[in-house]
Design a protein around this nucleic acid. Sequence first.
DNA 1: TGTACATCAGTGAACGCGCGTTCACTGATGTAC
DNA 2: TGTACATCAGTGAACGCGCGTTCACTGATGTAC
Lengths: 231, 231
Amino acid sequence: MNETRRQKQRAAVNEEIKEVARRLMVEQGTAGVSLRAIARQMDMSAPALYHYFANREALITALIVDAFNALADHVEQAREAAGSRPLGERLMAVLLAYRQWALANPVDFELIYGNPIPGYDAPQEVTAPAAARGLAALAELIAEVGQGRGPAAEEYQVIPPELEPFFQALQKREGYDAPLLALYLAAVAWSRVHGILMLELVNQLQPLVGDGELFYRSQVEAMLRGMGLKG
Amino acid sequence: MNETRRQKQRAAVNEEIKEVARRLMVEQGTAGVSLRAIARQMDMSAPALYHYFANREALITALIVDAFNALADHVEQAREAAGSRPLGERLMAVLLAYRQWALANPVDFELIYGNPIPGYDAPQEVTAPAAARGLAALAELIAEVGQGRGPAAEEYQVIPPELEPFFQALQKREGYDAPLLALYLAAVAWSRVHGILMLELVNQLQPLVGDGELFYRSQVEAMLRGMGLKG
DNA sequence: TGTACATCAGTGAACGCGCGTTCACTGATGTAC
DNA sequence: TGTACATCAGTGAACGCGCGTTCACTGATGTAC
C-alpha cells in the first residue's frame, strides 16, 4: 500500500521532469535540454534528477521514445476514429493526423525527425522499435490497399523494379502481410507528406504556397486520387 | 597596393573563420557554433574574432547566407552543365544536384532547412533573398515547362483551384513569367524531393527503402514521367 | 501495535569545464606630407 | 624618400554566467519482527 504511494510519487515526478523538459525545449530548442534548468523550474536541486535518470543522455532518450509513441498513438487514434469509412477517407484522416501532431508538438517532432542533438547518440535498440510504431498505422491501413482500388495513375500502378528487392526484404524482416505495392505506396505517401511538413515547420513553405494546410490537403487528395484510393 | 594586401588578408581570415565554423559544426552540430572554439582552432584569441563579426549571431547569419548561396550555385551549375538536353533531363539533373549538395554538406543543409538554432533569430531581410535564390534555378527551368509537355497524369494537369490565388500572388510578387501551373509543379517537385532527402539525412528512410539514392531517383523519374516531362 | 532497521528522494558544496563579450593595451601596416 | 600620424588586427585579463556530474549528508517513507 504505502509502497504504492511512493511508487506513484516517483512515477509522477518522473513524468513531471519530462514535461518540464519538453516545455523548456519549446523555448530553448532541442539542443537546450539542461538538467540544471529543469531542476530550477521544478524548485529542486539538480542532483536530485539523478534519482530519476542516469544522466542527460538517458533523459533525452526517454523524450525521444515518448515522442515516437505519442505520434504513433495520435495517428492510430485518428485511424480508429475514422472507423469503417472508405479507405481513402481513413488514409486521409491518418495523414492529416500526422501533420496535426507535428504542428501541435513541433519540438517533439524536431526531436525525432530533425537535426541530431550534438553530443547525443540515440541508442538504436531503444529508439528503433518506437520509431517503427510510427509507420504501423499507415502500414496496416495499406494492407487493405490491395483490395478494391479504383483505377490508378501509371505512376502508382507498379513498384519500380529496382526497388522491389528492398521492399521484399522489408516485408520479410518486419513480417508485414501487406502486398509489396502497398508497402511501396506507403513509403511514397510518407516521404511526400513529410517533405511538405518539414518545409512548413521551418517556414520555408509559406512564402511559396501561402497556406500550409491547404497545400498539404490538396497534395494528399491529389495523391490518393492518383493512387485510386479516393472513391 | 598595400591597402589591398591588408584587405586581402582580412578577406582570407574572414573566410577561414567561416570554414573552421563549418568544420566544427560537423562535429558539434549546428547549435555548437562557438566563437571560442573557432578561435582555439585558429590559434587566435577569441576577442580577435570581433574584428570580423559583430557577434555570434552575425557569424551564424553569414553561414546561413553562404549555405543558401552555395546550394543555389551548385544547382545552377548542374543546370548549365545539362546545357540543351531535353527539359526532362535538365530537371532531373537539377533535382539530383539538390540531393547531392545536401549529402555532401549535411550540416549546411541542416543549418538552412533544419531545426532553428536556439537563441538565434534569422534576420529575414538578409536571409530571405538568399533562400529565394535556391528556387531560382528550378523556377526558371519550369518557365519552359509550359511548352512541349508530353501527356501528363491527371494529378499534374491543373493547379488545384483552391491554391490558385496563392500562386497568382507568388507570380506577381516575384515577377516570375512562368505560367501558374509551372510554378505549382515546381513547388510540388521541391516538397517531394525535400521530404525524401530529410528522411534520408536523419537515417529514417534507409530502414524503410534500403537505398536512399535509388529511391530518390525512382521517385523523381516517376514524377517527371507523370508530369509529362520525361520524353 | 511498537520498534529497529533499510531504503531512497532530496540537499548543498564542490569539481572542472566552456561560453559570449568588454576592456585597455600593443604593435604592425598603411597614409599623407 | 623619410617621417609623423592614423588605422586596426590581435592580445591577455577579466566579467558573470551556465553546464553535467560527484560526493557525503539528512531525513522522511516503508519493511520486518
